[in-house]
Design a protein around this nucleic acid. Structure first.
Lengths: 226, 226, 226, 226
DNA sequence: AATGAATGAGGGTTCATTCAT
DNA sequence: AATGAATGAACCCTCATTCAT
């Protein structure tokens, strides 16, 4: 049975859009959207300046494509993991979350967070997309887990949204650091980011537990009289 | 009685640098350094384009001045608060931290975080300054408090640096949000940021406490068999 | 028979650098380097402002290219003439020198002298180039001829370098005049510059001759006693 | 008898215009008119930028004043020397000319020649002034001496205007060199400019003499028959 | 008379975009 | 589909000139 003859050139051609997006993402994250030149993107992708315009009609559209492509990939991966997940909800947080995060952190997708922080005010459409496709589903997922925990008496009743943020914001923040300060002066203090994230999630989940506070422990905000 | 001879022109002139810095900060945070035009800054400060150059020799120097001025003000304020603080170390975290953060969050200084994330790779000198003047002293302060707590038996022995980050990163992240997504689509879910920060700190500090885990509570990482 | 595939666009492109250099030389000589605008050069060359930067990375580099190109052309032409020259050394001065000068004078290259006088203090690299490539070889050539004449007893022994300057400086000066005063108010008095140069060279060479001074003629500096 | 009290301030005030002109001349000659900034001139003269405008209404007027002032001084000095001259016409050329030239060469006035060459096309009024006040009287003076020499049988009958140029152009050229190439790389070959000028004038005057050409000497262009 | 802060038109340079090849 | 020369609007920065003090 003959394999369809895929010449190097054809493969190249089909891979083009992805190569362009990769080059663009790298540079947008490194230097910011406004400071990145189309020639640089083209050069890094190994094509000429004009070729860019055969695939994306403007720099701005290229930016949006970069963000959409990376996020939808990442969302899809996350959803897959969740669908395939067997185990308790707590497991979802203790194991799935760090694993998913680490993939993200180690992939170019981590840069997209910086891109969003950086460019969202210039291109507010990005905000809508990001909120709808990433933030809301993600928060919904984690929020649901926490809510179930509360209802099951595992967790103290607290503001669920807040707890989600307590869990998630440092993860996002580490992605940002990776592409800003982390690329200049290492914050060595953090050790391996993965370990930090593990400890962080553990810390927050412990903070959510219901238990008798050991006397003399770090004072709760409103110490009981007596 | 002689009126002090401060003409409008003089008053204007002394206030200039601050007015320029304020206008520049606003715009750099809104649109990014590269996408902000010197004319815009001048216009917002109510002067002509050329006047900018009487005070700052280039756009880049203006950026650095903006960052330095805001951070040094903020550092000074923070140090003041700490120096004047009476009370336990736990108080320092439970009350001083949120209060200091809220000032920051509600002032233009909150934008500086975005500026640093955004521009640090283009101007790596900024990283040095920020690490040396802000990150290190800040982390040292909080780290010391946690370390004392551990030594006093209040807190579980954990990686202190990590705990500092667990406390602080969401605070920084909220500043970033304020000037990016927050300026587009409100993340209403968060309620008042101040309340979230209170809850967050409480959550982390509880997570640090030593206590007997209530049976059935959210599983510790390695559940005992049986 | 296949037509050579030189499209108008290609022809255009190859001719560009020379067209730009020509336009730039004209304007630099007319108005001076600092007072010439890049737009003007572009306009005179029939291209847009940006196109200039495809060929020369800055105004200053354009200046240097202009000077180098013209001088190297001129040097090459002069060397050719000398190499092909048959005849006595005196011929070299009496015929070759005026001929070579006239070519120079009537070509745009004459303006380069003005350019050098005008801009050399601002761009001292030009001095090095000009001295090494033009002044030294030129003076060496003429100096050698005079030296031989002295050794052969044709010429009085005098300071050869000085004699070279006596011959050459008026030739350079005429080039300067052509592009300064000469372009405003004609110095009609000079008649045809070529005739002047002929007479000048003749005058100097006669002044170099050894002969018995006719009694009563213009007093030599140190009249022989009795 | 009391000397009128001239305070330093008054002296200063009266000297102002001259100080400004001196500073302006230096800088215009060094860097060219267009590339010289008013602030620099003011700074070199020790006044503030605004003060310039109290004396000269624009940069262009300042340039013209600079040229006029230096030239009229120089012309006056030259005329004085000629008026006071006693001796033959030949002396006028052999001694007065070099002496007058040396004064010029060693004074800031030498720079004016460069200024004229450089700026005359931008400000053609300068040409009229220079031709009328400097070139014509100067040429007339020298031309008259030569003419008398011809009529007296001292000099060969040649084109007088040309001979004047043969004498004078190298003198001017040396002034130009002093402020262009000479200020970068010395043309050491010339020795002392004064000596060169002496030799040059001698050379030309010898070339003008009537005498029997020594057989075998450098061939005159049109050897007399017989 | 003197200052120097302020202005704003203007010039060098960059770069997104177009289009002939 | 791919190229890269060409364009020209836009931006940073300079500097002659003005004017309130």
């Amino acid at each position: 049975m003959s394999v369809p003859a895929v010449t190097p050139r054809q493969r190249r051609k089909e891979a083009r859009p992805q190569e362009l997006l990769d080059a663009a993402l790298e540079l947008f994250v490194e230097k910011g959207f406004a400071a990145t030149r189309q020639d640089e993107i083209a050069a890094r992708a190994g094509v000429s300046k004009g070729t860019l315009y055969l695939y994306y009609p403007s720099k701005e559209e290229l930016l949006k494509a970069v963000i959409r492509e990376r996020l939808s990939t990442e969302i899809e991966a996350g959803m897959q993991q969740v669908r395939q997940h067997v185990g308790s909800n707590a497991d979802l947080l203790r194991s799935l979350l760090p694993r998913w995060w680490e993939n993200m952190f180690n992939s170019p997708a981590s840069g997209v967070f910086k891109l969003i922080i950086t460019e969202v005010r210039t291109f507010p459409e990005i905000a809508d997309y990001y909120m709808r496709e990433v933030v809301e589903p993600g928060h919904h997922l984690i929020g649901t887990v926490l809510q179930r925990g509360i209802e099951a008496g595992e967790f103290r009743p607290i503001n669920v949204e807040g707890a989600v943020h307590s869990l998630v914001l440092p993860m996002v923040m580490l992605c940002l650091h990776k592409h800003s300060l982390g690329a200049c002066s290492a914050i060595e203090s953090l050790g391996h980011p993965h370990d930090f994230i593990q400890q962080h999630i553990d810390l927050v989940l412990r903070g959510l537990e219901i238990r008798d506070t050991k006397p003399g422990a770090a004072a709760p905000r409103k110490p009981r009289p007596g």
